[in-house]
Nucleic acid binder design. Structure first.
Lengths: 152, 152
DNA sequence: CTTGAAATTCCCAGATA
DNA sequence: TATCTGGGAATTTCAAG
């Protein structure tokens, strides 16, 4: 499916676009050592083959009111397929949840949650997570400092 | 510093740019219901005030050879300032580490690590993490499924 | 709204298999 | 030869004062 293996030129283009997605095609072409049209053709090919999934603006989370980050580990009590589906659906719908991964071990989920503060976080846990029937326990670690945070 | 509070129009602009950072200014202006020049002025203001930190391309991790994700929890043994600095410096330099957060509790770090497979992961732990003097213990959970993964 | 720049399309040339 | 990739010109669209 992903036989579109990027050659050296593609890698250079990807690197530039990761560093600045709003660079103009002309500028990009010059940086990687191509002329404009083949450069644009490569970008399109990378987009269409799914190597480039999209482009996004990086917005300061504080502006959006998110000032506190937490890592929550959720353990499920029951394993009914439909309850798990409901759990995952709910997670996807909540803006506070930045990430949610199903991990090995017992059926555990690791969540990265953003909130506007402790009160907001408490409400999120009490009124959203804890109300899901299949949730057995929740454990929270608050993020004191973020050493590194790369994009996907 | 971040007194540049986004109004409703700014929020709409941010939403569009998060969804597609390579949209043209004209298209963006039309979508948010502005004409081109005030729209561009707002973008510049959002960029200059730091609300927009940058723009990036989202590249399929599989293309780059990352096929396995793990959540590792690292506990430090000693608390010497300089060892912690060294730990964090090392973490920042390793491509495998996507995220690293210092969390509450005992001095623990939560890491999101990408690798090309189990062998690569084992090598990463043995040859990089475990060799850091201040590391007391490491616990790994492998990601079986990612339910949600939003950008910052 | 106008001017200059960029994106995009089209066609041709050279390399490769 | 058939195919792939780069280059340049022409046209449309966009940026920016």
């Amino acid at each position: 499916m992903t036989q579109k293996i990027a050659d050296e030129m593609d890698r250079r283009i990807l690197k530039e676009l990761v560093a600045d997605a709003r660079i103009t095609n002309n500028e990009l072409a010059e940086r990687v050592g191509l002329s404009a049209s083949p450069c644009l053709r490569r970008i399109r090919r990378l987009e269409e083959s799914g190597v480039i999934r999209g482009y996004t603006a990086l917005v300061d989370p504080v502006i959006e009111g998110w000032t506190m980050t937490a890592i929550a580990t959720v353990r499920l009590s029951r394993q009914h397929e439909d309850e798990i589906v409901m759990f995952e659906e709910a997670i996807r719908g909540w803006d506070e949840v930045l990430e949610c991964h199903l991990v090995t071990g017992s059926r555990d989920y690791v969540l990265k949650v953003m909130s506007s503060g402790l009160e907001h976080y408490e409400r999120f846990i009490k009124e959203k997570i804890a109300r899901l029937k299949c949730v057995a326990s929740i454990e929270t670690s608050f993020v004191m400092n973020t050493i590194k945070e790369r994009r996907i």
